[in-house]
Design a protein around this nucleic acid. Structure first.
Lengths: 354, 354
DNA sequence: AAGCAGTGGGAATGCGCTTTCCCAATCAGC
DNA sequence: GCTGATTGGGAAAGCGCATTCCCACTGCTT
């Protein structure tokens, strides 16, 4: 038994397909109540499920929303995904998932795939990159996005705009005040604390990372502190771990007379990695070094020592991005919702004098 | 400018749509090289992207695979989702995501929505429930799944079959040896340890939870130990936390002369919650109580104290489930891949004599 | 009573693509 | 040199639905 079609339902109800369509999918015209009743009953008894593909073809709109993340198992993206999913449900749409590992080339593929499926909108999470090696791919991604928008697609990107994207219509950016927040964090950490600052950053050219580094340095400068030393590493846990190892070696080499070290990892997973490395080397936090991260991912809730960080409303970010792409959102640009705000959250990992 | 169509490409190339389709989407018949070249060039210059909806309609197959989870931000599901995504990519398909919070009614909705989109297959993660309150919804879910399968859909469910599902064709179950593994865990924990066992379980009727409880008790019995006391709670972190709180009170009331307590939480997030509760109450692990979980979610990697657990290859589970639903997998039932195995993993949280 | 707008239903077209069927041209075989 | 098989391309028929247009009919108005 193949899935039953509208035509079959119509025949069973003794009406035309047009009428059946009108009653089952709420068009502007509503057939008479008796007819409607008959059609509905026929649909029921046949277990009719409308073919969304066909509907999409006919209406050219699919009720699909594409989500692009680096890695769905990363708590940061998982939280955003939850928000997106939530908003999608409230708009009665479904989300299509694509994971790219952060490579612009893959992201371009994903956009093309979403476009092929005629997704109504696309949400891109995950930091944009301006690295030279990605230049070509980024340009292609931007072109793909432009084309998608010109064809009526809506796209929202979290954080920074895609380099070179120039679509005017249907292109939204959910701005995250990374720089300002990192600056506040630096201010908080510098306050009444005498130590050397080190930043564990991601690869150069990653906007999110670079913004946070820049903000942090600015904060230190404002507080009259010398700039932090910068250690670059991969933008994930193992990157943090490696950087942490290097710092641990250095700390141990410096001996007991060393000045206290205050570490800022540009995201929480890196901070977790660094913390693990320090611990593995026998160092304790915050006694031997203090450390702070960024994002306040859910994992931190039960992580010890409690990590200082900057709280970001990740779920809201996903939700807002999704809503920005909704039909009708364009008509109310003023109702764009509250801008994203974060909050410096100091916890045990940066307690002074421990 | 609307997205260009196959017909436009064909016209530009000076061939018929049929020919254009043949060269661009690899049919059985391949047109001559010169023509192919012309068509490809035309497609290129127009930035042609095939309309997957139309393709799906024509071929009645969408290249979509539906994934149903309770909560995408739960590390357990996120890990499975990663596996699914990975397998999907290797089959050049896209994944549609649905989160249900575990409610069978929502799951039924999701299945219907996937069916409407003509998803080629559906992967259901998340534990099945046999609770009375869910009886009706479960029956409807089963009916929906049956219908989906009869219409040629492939479904794979992780863990237990859906109650009442009776489709013979296209219905796969990725079995997880919860009971056996829980039994092994109990055996390991009972070995050379004198203590009272307590199990923190999920709500009655949740298969995963019940299986693990049953296995654990069986393991204790085999080891000649009295059955563990059972505390039921929600199947998530806060459930674990509440149960942990109760246990903490009891421990503290019992005073220093108490017998050591060994806790088994039926999954890791509950174990984490319980641990947090004990810690919040000033108790230490493993000194004041030992604890073990189940799943070995990625979060555990950096959780302290290191939690004993049962390692489950979550990503593989997702991958296997997805592969089981792939076209062609049915022809090679013998190549169903290795059965899922887990491994008792003892860590610091259950170290005796600490 | 004739003419009118308004109402409720059906016929037909098209969304963009795949695929069968058909036809002309080429080739091999005798 | 003729027939039969084979190749390579096009015409056309759907896939399942939404929607525009059209028509028959009702209930008014003057």
């Amino acid at each position: 038994m193949a899935a039953s079609t509208l035509t079959e339902v119509a025949r069973l109800a003794g009406v035309s397909p047009a009428t059946a369509s009108r009653v089952l999918n709420g068009s502007a015209r509503t057939p008479g109540p008796d007819i409607a009743q008959r059609v509905r009953q026929a649909a029921d008894s046949l277990g009719y499920i409308p073919n969304a593909q066909a509907q999409g073809l006919a209406k050219s709109s699919s009720g699909l929303i594409g989500l692009i993340v680096h890695d769905i198992a990363d708590p940061y993206f998982a939280a955003i995904a939850r928000g997106v999913q939530d908003a999608a449900r409230e708009q009665r749409r479904m989300v299509l998932l694509a994971t790219t590992g952060g490579a612009p080339a893959e992201e371009k593929e994903a956009v093309a795939a979403f476009a092929a499926r005629r997704a109504d909108s696309i949400v891109i999470a995950g930091s944009r990159s301006a690295r030279n090696e990605d230049l070509q791919d980024n340009a292609e991604l931007a072109a793909e996005l432009d084309r998608y928008c010109r064809n009526g697609g809506q796209v929202a990107v979290v954080g920074h705009p895609v380099v070179g994207a120039s679509a005017s219509e249907g292109y939204h950016v959910v701005a995250v005040p990374n720089e300002e927040l990192a600056q506040s964090l630096a201010a908080s950490l510098a306050e009444g604390r005498d130590c050397d600052f080190v930043v564990i950053g991601g690869p150069e050219g990653l906007f999110t990372s670079d913004d946070r580094i820049r903000g942090f340095q600015a904060g230190l400068e404002r507080a009259g502190r010398p700039a932090a030393e910068l250690v670059r590493s991969a933008f994930n846990r193992s990157g943090g771990y490696e950087a942490g190892l290097a710092l641990a070696q250095r700390l141990k080499a410096a001996g007991p007379a060393r000045r206290p070290l205050c570490i800022f990892a540009v995201n929480d997973v890196m901070a977790i990695g660094a913390t693990a490395a320090l611990r593995a080397e026998g160092l304790r936090i915050p006694r031997d070094a203090t450390i702070a991260g960024f994002d306040d991912i859910e994992t931190l809730r039960d992580f010890r020592p409690a990590l200082s960080t900057v709280r970001l409303p990740l779920e809201d970010i996903g939700r807002l991005a999704t809503r920005a792409t909704a039909r009708g959102a364009a008509e109310h640009p003023d109702e764009a919702g509250p801008p994203i705000t974060g909050a410096v959250t100091l916890r045990r990992s940066t307690e002074a004098g421990a």
